[in-house]
């Protein structure tokens, strides 16, 4: 078969354009970041000099903020991925079974995703402010009305114990909608005859969920878990807006990306920020490979 010049050009050009795009926007920035991670580097400094692995040594062995930020990022990722996936699955399944108002339910759960994060943070502050927030005061008056011991004033955003769970809750509220939509699409793609046959055979709703729904939506489930993990480890906005850029109290909500931002743009230590970026990159890569490995074993 003869291939026309036009088609040949397309066959060569399409991957070339994609490759060029990938080179400019992914490979070169990663290479540049890796390169400056071996320097004490700032774009405005006159004395940028090589420091070998010193930035990595500082992050791993000297800077306790790095480890705090790592633990915080993993804490957020764990809460966000585990709770987020379970909740999204349960809600998507419930919405799929709705006979009426299904679109309304989808809209309600997806709505927070549409809010700008700053506006969402303002609303969140109204809810979780320890002194004036709706949550603490509402629970106080509720316990009073029920004759129970008064609900204490909990520092949802001002104590090291509660600040991260509050941020996780914010992340769930903000980003749950997209997961629900993905899982809902997967659930709705399952042929109805499987459920009809199972019902005829006397299989309960719970068993149908466990033995039909979950196995058949596994690819989507894995997608939600893997992208959720990657996005969670790269979390920046929720902490930044809720703690006004501080990551407090006592750095209890400072994520690795916040540390990168602070080191680079506030302290002008772009070399150090680059080394933390590379460590984060490595961490995400290892965890993603582990997840893919688990998935491939499961397939086998």
């Amino acid at each position: 078969m003869k291939i026309s010049t036009r088609n040949r050009l397309f066959v060569i050009g399409a991957p070339l354009v994609a490759g060029l795009f990938f080179l400019i926007w992914f490979i070169l920035p990663i290479g540049w970041t890796m390169g400056i991670s071996f320097f004490e580097y700032s774009p405005i400094a006159s004395d940028n000099h090589a420091v070998g692995f010193q930035n990595y040594i500082e992050a791993l062995f000297e800077d306790d903020t790095f480890w705090k930020a790592t633990v915080n990022s993993l804490y957020f990722a764990f809460g966000n991925v585990v709770l987020g996936t379970v909740l999204a699955l349960v809600i998507a399944n419930a919405i799929a079974s709705l006979q009426v108002f299904q679109n309304l339910a989808k809209f309600v759960y997806f709505m927070p995703t549409l809010f700008t994060i700053v506006a969402a943070a303002v609303v969140w502050d109204e809810i979780f402010h320890p002194r004036y927030g709706i949550l603490n005061n509402g629970l106080f008056f509720l316990t009073q009305a029920l004759g129970l011991p008064a609900f204490p004033e909990i520092g949802w955003t001002t104590t090291t114990f509660w600040s991260m769970p509050t941020i996780i809750l914010f992340g769930l509220w903000k980003y749950l909608g997209i997961r629900i939509i993905i899982l809902l699409a997967a659930i709705e793609a399952i042929p109805k005859m499987y459920y009809e046959a199972a019902t005829v055979d006397g299989v309960t709703q719970r068993q149908q969920f466990r033995y039909i729904t979950i196995p058949l939506i596994k690819p989507a489930l894995w997608f939600v878990i893997i992208t959720g993990l990657i996005n969670s480890l790269q979390v920046f906005e929720p902490m930044y807006v809720i703690t006004e850029g501080v990551g407090g109290p006592l750095r209890s909500t400072m994520s690795l990306v916040m540390l990168i931002n602070k080191s680079g743009f506030e302290y002008q230590r772009f070399g150090y920020a680059a080394s933390v970026s590379m460590l984060l990159f490595a961490m995400i890569m290892v965890l993603t490979i582990v997840l893919f490995w688990i998935r491939s074993r499961e397939k086998d």
Partner: peptide, 8 residues
């Protein structure tokens, strides 16, 4: 300090 160093 930073802006002096960078001659900005």
């Amino acid at each position: 300090s930073e802006f002096c160093d960078g001659n900005l």
